[in-house]
């Protein structure tokens, strides 16, 4: 099975999301330092909160790249495989015959970047394929629907025989 990488725009999206998280962290940290300075405990707060903040920011800087680089997906007539994760590497295998329905989703930033995600619903779980190009997402849904119909037909024939 051929495994595909996410489009380059997905990396931008990951960086934007991490940027928002970084702004939120700094938005909490900077007022804390200002307040602590007024209370005379600036150094203590800088050390105590600064270390976790620095670690978090470093993660936010590195994480998107590796997330993008290590994300891969592929599908054929029988299976869909999604590989993701940086520290813990996940590889999900979903049989096409177990698909219940397929959805495309877009968040506001995804819309700006022309990206779309595909949610594969099975009887019990939902699996997200994040950040494909909209055209890729539509094509994937179309192709998978075709495979699914074919598999359902094959299964019905097997049962009749």
């Amino acid at each position: 099975m051929k495994m595909n990488q996410l489009p380059r725009k997905a990396l931008k999206l990951f960086y934007i999301r991490c940027g928002i998280a970084a702004v939120a962290i700094l938005g909490a940290f900077i007022p804390a330092v200002i307040l602590a300075s007024a209370g005379g405990a600036r150094t203590a707060v800088l050390i105590c909160a600064g270390i976790p903040v620095l670690i978090s920011l470093a993660f936010l800087l590195i994480l998107p790249y590796y997330r993008y680089k290590l994300y891969a997906y592929g599908f054929d007539e029988k299976r869909i495989v999604v590989r993701y994760g940086v520290i813990f590497r996940h590889s999900v295998t979903i049989p096409v015959c177990q698909i219940q329905d397929l959805h495309r989703f877009e968040g506001p930033i995804m819309m700006l970047l022309g990206l779309g995600g595909v949610t594969i619903s099975t009887a019990g779980s939902n699996f997200n394929l994040a950040c494909l190009l909209k055209s890729e997402a539509d094509l994937m849904i179309e192709v998978l629907e075709g495979y699914l119909e074919k598999r359902v037909e094959e299964k019905a024939n097997e049962e009749i025989q």
Binding site: R89, S125, F127
Partner: peptide, 14 residues
């Protein structure tokens, strides 16, 4: 009843 199998590993374990 199996709808999917997910393999979770780390580089060292792999």
């Amino acid at each position: 009843s199996l709808v999917a199998v997910e393999d979770v590993t780390t580089p060292l374990r792999a």
